[in-house]
Each structure stands twice: as structure tokens, then as C-alpha cells.
Design a protein around this nucleic acid. Structure first.
Length: 210
DNA sequence: CACCAGGTTGACC
DNA sequence: GGTCAACATGGT
């Protein structure tokens, strides 16, 4: 059963890296913005964009919803795909503004996920990141690092299959979901050179007697 | 200079 | 129902 291995990976990574305390943000909507901007982009670029948005007081749904897209473009340019992202960011802001950020975040995890998925620019990973880190509801986030690391230890599947495996393997605990996803990302960035996990995570597991 | 980054979408088999 | 180019800047 893969459950035992998955939980083992969590304890090993936590032991090695310590708590990561994700997601850095002052408000829930800032997590939404960050989740969209970080797609296929390094977080350092996202930080610059978010700082710029903050300086222009555009980090809340109400303000962002009424900002011209070409002004948003200038601020999110450093994140790449800036024409798409500025357009999508504004549409998302309009949606949050119309329906009320509080109302949206008080939906159940499943309802929120489905609602987010109906918006352009929000797919599985971005939706789950928002559910977990902005709405604080337990939904496990799968990303490219997770898929890669699991493949390296013989656990394969598409997004929804992997998510089910993780959610079955772990207690439905907010902090564990948050930490584990963060640990996989940070560990992969630090040790898995050029998309290769087989020489890192397997070694960690081996050294820990797994 | 080639390659990659905390993906998503729409077009085309 | 799966595959794949397009989207674009910034860092190694």
C-alpha cells in the first residue's frame, strides 16, 4: 500500500527540513493573487509583483477589479505570461468582488474548488492552493514536484488519483497538508537537480530505514 | 546559449 | 479522451 510510504516521506522531509510555514501572505486574497501569478514562475518574481501591487493598493479584490489591465500588466510583467495573467487576475478580482470574498471563502472545500475551477486561469493546482492556503480547508495540493517525486518512488497517477492517495494516506489535518506540500516543493528545489528525484528522495528514505 | 520555473487553455487528432 | 503548442519573463 502506498499510504505508508507517503506518510513516511512526510516524516522524513519534516525531520530533514523542518516546518516551512507556507503560504507567505497578509490576506486570503493575496494568496489568490500569488497562486495565479506563481504558475510556471519562480516565487521571487511573484514577490516583486505582489510588492508592486501593494504599493499601488491593488492587492484586494475591490481595487483590482476596477484597475485597467494594462496597468496590471506592467506590475505582473516580471511573472511571465503577463498578458494572460493580468486579464485573468482582473476577471478573478471582479468575481470575488461581486460575490463577496467572505462568502466565497465560506463555501465548503468542494464547492469552493468547483467554483474556482470555473474561472479562467484556475486549474486543479491553483484551485487547491487557494482552498488550502487562502480558505484554510484541507485539500491536498499536487504539483509537478509532487508528481515527479512520487514517480521516483514508484507511485504514479494523474492529478486526482495522486490527490486521493495523499488524502487517504494522511490525517485530514490542515497543517499537515500545508507543510507536506511545502516540504515537497522546497526539498525538490534544494536537492532534485534537473528533474531527477531518484538520487535524492530515495536516498533520504534509505538513510531513514524505509 | 539552452533550459527551467510551485500551470492552464484551446486546438487537433 | 489524450496530446501538445502557446503563453513570456527572469535566473542559472
Amino acid at each position: 500500500m502506498e499510504s505508508k510510504i507517503i506518510y513516511r516521506v512526510y516524516t522524513v522531509l519534516l525531520g530533514k527540513m523542518g516546518p516551512q510555514n507556507w503560504w507567505p501572505a497578509e490576506t486570503a486574497f493575496e494568496v489568490v493573487v500569488g497562486a495565479l501569478l506563481t504558475q510556471q514562475t519562480k516565487w521571487t518574481n511573484v514577490e516583486k509583483a505582489i510588492n508592486g501591487l501593494k504599493e499601488h493598493c491593488m492587492i484586494d479584490a475591490f481595487s483590482l477589479a476596477q484597475t485597467d489591465t494594462d496597468q496590471i500588466e506592467r506590475l505582473v510583467r516580471c511573472c511571465g505570461f503577463y498578458r494572460q495573467k493580468s486579464l485573468r487576475l482582473k476577471e478573478i478580482a471582479i468575481f470575488f468582488n461581486e460575490h463577496g470574498t467572505q462568502n466565497i471563502f465560506s463555501l465548503t472545500a468542494h464547492e469552493l474548488r468547483q467554483t474556482l475551477l470555473s474561472l479562467k486561469g484556475i486549474g486543479n493546482e491553483t484551485a487547491d492552493s487557494i482552498v488550502l492556503y487562502a480558505a484554510n480547508k484541507p485539500k491536498f495540493v499536487i504539483d509537478a514536484y509532487t508528481t515527479r517525486m512520487m514517480r521516483c518512488i514508484g507511485i504514479e497517477g494523474d492529478y486526482m488519483q495522486l490527490q486521493r492517495m495523499f488524502e487517504s494516506a494522511l490525517p485530514a489535518d490542515l497543517d499537515i497538508y500545508k507543510e507536506f506540500h511545502a516540504l515537497i516543493v522546497e526539498y525538490s528545489k534544494a536537492y532534485c537537480i534537473r528533474k531527477r528525484c531518484d538520487e535524492c528522495i530515495l536516498k533520504e528514505l534509505d538513510e531513514n530505514g524505509c
